[in-house]
Write a protein that binds this DNA or RNA. Structure first.
Lengths: 115, 115, 115, 115
DNA sequence: GTGGTCTAGACCACC
DNA sequence: GTGGTCTAGACCACA
């Protein structure tokens, strides 16, 4: 976790979980780590992990079975993709184009910075 | 000012001043509005403007003449440009490329979103 | 705290913290008192302590872990030493030599004043 | 004048005048520049020069003849010397030794910094 | 008039 | 609980 980051830690954790689903490390229907396990793993307050899970549940990426744990939704993969796509286009791109205008950078200019 | 914004108001004010310098509305060596004047204009507390000015002074964009006011630095223009460029390249671009990789979007694909 | 001092209170607090690091009362990586705790101890407004912490964070002496508190940087000790050394050599010494010249005092003459 | 200096401008002006007396550019009994002349000279608000003159008058370095101007006191030279000496020993030296202790610098070490 | 500092008290996101 | 920001209002040195 990056504690000196503009992104809240709980969102960093949510992103981490979504990435592990995209990378097929966990599959639809599988149980994910418990709040406490994950909290111990990433050295974070359990409340923070809980908040990440709640967020993912709200987004329909995971679901909760009381007393058992959290599981990956069947359509988690597509949900995540469309979530990321929407956020990228609606929130990230406008900011990108705004900044590029200010700095007189064209889209083709970006290629030189691409690692 | 956008009071319901993730960016703090004092940073919005700082950005506003930097923009007015980039737009050549105020030039190097010129005095800018006093803390109290600007606070009245943008309807915020003088302390908030003060904080924006202190930030800009730390960045070398403006300087203070005691009892007189704040003035635009001689190299303010370049300072601002390099400040913005650095932030863009070091903080914004890595995030951009990370997201594009996840979404399988190429740099050329961006052109279709450009207004 | 000395409230009738030419140095602002928030700088006195910053100096106090740096001294406690130099004196090894707190070590690298350790958490320091919270804003509110310290404010209570030294009988000042929390905002004033906050300002001291922000200054020290800008200088890289301490860092923040969100929702948890402030911690001493790994290289705080060296940072403080070099901060003080630089200030001494660049701002204090020239003034010293200027005054000594005016008063016809040599460096060796200083020894007689040393307690 | 150095407007970005910890020393107040009126004290810088007072020091300037005292220096010109020490350098024998003006002699005891001679009239010095008027407030307005000097203010124009150093590009400063006349109030600021006035304040420097008042300070010097308080210290007995100059005296005022109403409607005519300010004149250098007969014992200005000695007054200035002892003023500077006293300030140096009572205010400057303790600070010097305090800082040198913190930085583990000895009096002999100073010689290497002497231009 | 100017900026610089401080207090008191509030609200917020986050852990 | 933590720090971060903001307001309101005050006092100060300085120009």
């Amino acid at each position: 976790m990056d504690f000196n980051n503009q992104h809240p830690i709980f969102m960093q954790i949510a992103a981490m979980i979504m990435d592990s689903i995209l990378e097929k490390e966990v599959h639809a229907g599988e149980r994910i780590q418990s709040v406490r396990e994950l909290a111990g793993h990433v050295q974070v307050n359990p409340n923070t992990v809980q908040r990440a899970f709640s967020y993912l549940q709200d987004q329909g990426v995971i679901f909760n079975q009381r007393g058992v744990g959290y599981f990956v939704s069947d359509d988690a993969f597509d949900k995540i993709k469309s979530l990321k796509r929407e956020e990228f286009i609606k929130e990230f791109l406008p900011e990108l184009f705004r900044r590029m205008d200010h700095l007189n950078i064209s889209i083709d200019d970006l290629k030189q910075y691409k690692a």
